[in-house]
Every structure is written in C-alpha cells, then in structure tokens.
Design a protein around this nucleic acid. Sequence first.
DNA 1: ATGAAAGCGCTAACAC
DNA 2: GTGTTAGCGCTTTCAT
Lengths: 339, 339
Amino acid sequence: MKKAVSLKDIANNVGVSTALVSYVLNGKEKEARVSKQMAAKIRRAAKEMNYQPNLIARSLKYGKTKTIGLIVADISNPFFSSIARIIENKAKENGYTVVFGSSDEQLDKSADLLNALINRQVDGLIVTPVENSEEQIREIQEKGIPVVLIDRYFPKLNTNAVFINNYQSAYNATQHLIDNGYKKIGMVAYQSSLEHMKQRVKGYEKCLKDNGINASKDWLLKINYNHTETDFRDSLNAMLEKNTIDSLLFATVSLAVKSLHVINSRKIKIPDDFGLISFDESDAFDFFYSPLTFIKQNLQQLGSQSVQLLIDSINNNTTVIKKIEVPSTLVVRDSSKKK
Amino acid sequence: MKKAVSLKDIANNVGVSTALVSYVLNGKEKEARVSKQMAAKIRRAAKEMNYQPNLIARSLKYGKTKTIGLIVADISNPFFSSIARIIENKAKENGYTVVFGSSDEQLDKSADLLNALINRQVDGLIVTPVENSEEQIREIQEKGIPVVLIDRYFPKLNTNAVFINNYQSAYNATQHLIDNGYKKIGMVAYQSSLEHMKQRVKGYEKCLKDNGINASKDWLLKINYNHTETDFRDSLNAMLEKNTIDSLLFATVSLAVKSLHVINSRKIKIPDDFGLISFDESDAFDFFYSPLTFIKQNLQQLGSQSVQLLIDSINNNTTVIKKIEVPSTLVVRDSSKKK
DNA sequence: ATGAAAGCGCTAACAC
DNA sequence: GTGTTAGCGCTTTCAT
C-alpha cells in the first residue's frame, strides 16, 4: 500500500505549518484568521495531492471513532439483515460507520465480538443480545460505553432498548385465531430465557386462558437454539402426530419456515383444517399455497430508533435510559381464515 | 464514557515504564528480558485494572487496522447477507474485523462508502461493484489499497476477483430447459453493463443458437435497476401477454421473486405449460407450488476465497492478481420438468 | 496571519 | 533488566 498523503506532506509542499493546513481543511480558517490566498493555495494543493484525512489519527486525538458496533444474532437471517441495512443507512446519515458481527446465538462468540469492537473503540453498540449475555451487557454499561439493545432486552437490566410489545402481539395473534374459529391453538417457540421469547409465549397462554381455553402442555413446542434439522422435524412431527391442535403460532420466522416444510410434507390443509400465524415476514410466506398471516414489526422504526437512541446516548452523556416500544401489526391473509 | 485504562495507567500503578508493560502484554518478555516477577506483577495489574488495548492507537502506530471493508449491493438481500456472514466469520478467524456498507446499486453511494472506509484506513476491501464504478475501483487500486471484487468484475480491469462462470451457468440452465422440452425460452435480466449480467445473457443466447433456436427480440426482458414495482409488473405482463415464450430464466433471485408474483396472478401452469429456472436460492422457491429449479452458487467458497485472497494480497505486497472461479451447480426440481 | 509544540495510546530501537 | 524517547497523523493552545 502506497503511503498516503498527510497534512505534513501538504504543509511541506505549500511551505506552511501543519496547523494552517489543518485549519483550512477543517473550515476553521475564520477562527484562525488564515489569509484568503493561503487558504486557496492550501485547498488547491490538497486537491491536487488527493489528500484523504486519516480518521484513525483523528480518532486517537478525539477519543471518538464515529463508529457504531452492531452485533446481530444472525446476519444471514432476513429479519436481521433488513434491520442492518436500515441501521447502516441511518448511521451513515449521521456520519457514523457501522462495524458488525454475527453472534450466531452463541455466548462465547458474543463475548469475543463485544471485546473486538470495544477494543476498536466503537463509540457505542447496538446489540441483539443472546441468551445469558446479561452479564456481558452489564459490564459494557459499567465501562460507560453507550449501548442499545434491539429486538430483545433484559427486564432486570436498566439499558436503552428498542423492541415491540411481544406479549400483546402474541396475544392479538392468538385472539385472531380464536375469532376465526380455531379452538386448539398450539405454539412453536424457542426454549429460551430471553424475555422477548417468554413474553411471546405468555401472551399466547394468557389469551387462551382469557378465552376459557384449557391448553394442554403439549400444545407448546419449545425448540432448542442448537437443534439440528432432524431434531426439529422429529419434534414437530411428534407434536402434530398427536392431533390435539388445530392451529399454530410461530414465534419466529426461522421456526415458521422450517415448520412449513413439515406441514407441507404432512399434507395438512391450511386454513380449513389448520390455521397458521407467524411472527415476522418472509418471501416464503407469500408463496406458501395459503399465504401466511403474520405479525409485522416496524423494522424501519426498530432500526432508526435504535441508531437515534444510541447517538443521543453518545452525545448527551446524560444517562437517561430509554425503552422504546415500536409498533407491530397483524397482517391478515389466508392462513388464518377458516372458511 | 469513562476513561479507559491505558498502558501508562498500569505503568504508574506498578511503578515501571510503559515499555515494560507493552513488552509483557504483547508476550515479548523474552526478547526484552523482563524478569519473571515483574512480568507476573504487570500481568496481574493489567487483569485487575481490566486493561483493554486501544487498537486505534496501535493502528496508528502500525499503519494497519486489521479491518476489512465490505461493500455489497444490498445487505438486505439474502444472497449478499449470506455472503456477508461467511466473510465476517472468515475474517474473524484471521483476526480481522469487518466494516460494511450497502451501496444499493448506486454509483454515488458506492463512492461515498469507499471514501468513508478508506479514510477509516481499512487494510483492504471486498466489493460487489455497481454499474459504472470501474473508475472508482481503478482509483483504489492506484492508491495501492488491496481490493477483491466479488460476484461481479470488470473484464478490462486487472483486479482480484471471485465469481462463478456466469456464461456457463446460464448456458447449462438454458440447455436443461431445452432438454426438458421447452422450445421458446425467455429471460428476465437487468439492463446492465456489468459483465456478470452480460455473461448470463450471452450464455443464454449462445445456447439457443447452438440448438438452432431462433430467438426473437422480445424473448429477452431487460429491467432497469431503478424500476418501480409497477414498472416491473407492467413490463413482465406485457411480455407474457404476447404468448411467444414457454419458459423463463431469471438472472437474479430478486427478479425471480418479483416475477413469481406476476406468474401467480396470471395463473400460468408451471411446469406443464411453462418452465422456470432462476439464479440463486430463496425460501420462496421452496414454497412456490412448483418448487423452482435454480443455479446454486457456492457461497461458502465465494465468501471465504475472497477473504483469503484479500488477506494474501494485504500480506504479500507482491502484486499477483488472481481471478478465482467458484463452482455453481444446477439444482433440478419441479419447475423445469415438463411432464 | 502563521508556526511551534504538546499530546491522544502504543511500539520498539536504543541507552543505561 | 528497565527506562527513555521518537513517532504514527491529527488538532489546538499558545506564542510570535
């Protein structure tokens, strides 16, 4: 890599001090009372020499990198990659660059990534925390590094966070199934201590209860994050085998897509014999023979609010912690409408 | 943000010079002949004070940031986000962090991003270049910044690049349609001067020719990158209206998914009345009533080879330029098999 | 109106 | 065996 031109190179070339060059190139010629001619001369030289400021040096000086660290649970999951796109855009609008990593729902990978990004002096972090990572997040906060949790959060930890009302979303979806004539509603969720997941399950359970429906234990299938494809198929097949449910609520888009394969293979008739609703969207939902009803999170808001919150938190070192609830809506389509 | 502990803090605390601390913490105590006790003492202090090295300072010193810049055409597109995940993983394995941006197929956004990443002193770049960005890439090369193009490339530009054989892939797909009894094969592609797209079209055209099929001009639909949804629907509808083709090859997954909506709405019978093949994969393809035959690029190789190539190029400042062709296979399913 | 110089945190050649 | 110091590129205070 060729050596890049520095302020000093320009200074030498023009025959002035680096201070002058710095002033001019940062538009501070007024305050520094640089002469018009000199300013013009410096600007011209900078252009000719194709000067590019070294942001690393600036960062070292300022103690700010204008960089945001983003850690998602899985960047290849459209839910997260869509958010990543929104975050990157919004960050760029505000002069920030995004450094990212994918924790793959693994605690150790999450720790590694957090460390790597902190050592790189990111000004703040946006994180979808993985299970049991509460302590990691707490440590970051203790170091005084601004952090915003997104999609998920820890109820006992006082952090900035942006998320939907998972409880209510699940409740509404369940109610919608009931209103459409389904009576024995099952749910496929992750086996997780993460609050967003627990809330989704709670909303579902409470709704059944409120409707006087006596749910059986085996209406709820909890899947381990580290399942294999076969594990998954086997347990869902076992659940459906029992024939005790007439509909399903999926807690995530990944669970839904996998489940649809199983449902297809069992030739279950949607929506007449069986109803379906999922959290989040997928192209797959559109082309399933009975397009899926789904809970649409406002990704735009999730992403841009989290950036806004983080930047606020970086600037106002005032430690006002905010929890922001973002809207979600039920998009009703064919899969939940019994004829 | 609290002030982080620095080498100096440790040095003061222990009562030694920063040099010693630096040596010990970098495992150079042997070369520097630091006494065992002192080394232990320093290490303990570092741990107690929870020292985290400031990589920005180290970068400034070394002139290396151990950072890779990644620019994809659209991070929310699963094709690119899957690659991003692979790249991030592979980079991390090699001690690199990934900084990313999404150019959204726009020349000015691409220029902005390149600039931002270069100013942040990335050690190298992995880029899916947008149309007409040849000059931007050439400039980066002239600056001596290692760069690897991925998915796309410029034939006239001598750059590192990793891609599939687009010509052959399209040729094979077309031949497969012909072998399955389709005779009037159309294609939906982007209107683009990008070589990978031209190769896909060429492969398709050559195959028709080799089979003695006289393609009409209106078998090929070229879509502008900046189309609206309605634009797209209208032009595809117009094409299908003419009833001159009996099958379609889609040049990208995004074109395919949009097209499937139109095909669904026209109630065209796949594969009996009409055959379909697409480049790349999508969950949507699995749930389309006639699962799509598709050209599967080896993403794992695309991603990890590009990282490998970039790191080689960063380390061996030897300027050996490499073009790597990665395998692609035709995954045959229902949509291309006339009964 | 311009320059000299300190300092951000780290490394490493050199001195003692 | 340990300390001193210059320097990476930049900003900014203080002289002049």
